[in-house]
């Protein structure tokens, strides 16, 4: 009786162990697979457009650096209330440029390079103009995208 019982017990324990561990196994395989299939937030491989912020985030006659992929882009709201977006990487030695209110220009602190608001290098060492990005307004939102 006891022998049969213990056998029976062992068997039911084994069944229990087997079924629970199969469930656990399925969970540990399916969990990564399902999470993998769940699309990530950034659902494109390459950045093509970035939300720079709301119009109200930008003061008139000021500039702000935003991140575009791995590159900084300077978004400027001019005195005349126009929005401009340009690469913020100085073409001289890759410093990050800034908007200089007094001059109404884009200025690089490293070697006093200056660009006008169309990105043209107007003085100092920069050899080339800054790359221009496109501004798209959607309601209150300002989007920056690469020029096609």
């Amino acid at each position: 009786m006891s022998d049969l019982d213990s056998n029976q017990n062992r068997r039911s324990f084994l069944k229990y162990l087997l079924s629970t561990s199969i469930v656990g196994f399925l969970a540990s395989v399916l969990y990564p697979v399902i999470s993998y299939l769940n699309p990530p937030k950034q659902n494109e491989v390459e950045v093509s457009s970035v939300l720079a912020g709301k119009i109200s985030d930008f003061e008139k006659d000021s500039g702000k650096i935003i991140r575009f992929g791995n590159k900084p882009v300077i978004v400027i709201r001019t005195e005349k209330d126009e929005f401009k977006a340009l690469s913020a990487v100085c073409t001289h030695l890759d410093c990050t440029v800034q908007y200089k209110k007094e001059l109404g220009l884009i200025w690089c602190a490293c070697h006093n390079g200056k660009y006008d608001l169309t990105g043209k290098n107007v003085s100092g060492p920069p050899p080339r103009p800054l790359e221009v990005y496109k501004i798209n307004k959607q309601g209150e939102n300002i989007f920056v995208s690469k020029k096609a």
Binding site: P32, V33, Y36, N38, P40, K41, Q42
Partner: peptide
């Protein structure tokens, strides 16, 4: 880097 468990797969 972006897809969950992508590295594992």
């Amino acid at each position: 880097s972006k897809v969950q468990f992508g590295w594992l797969i």
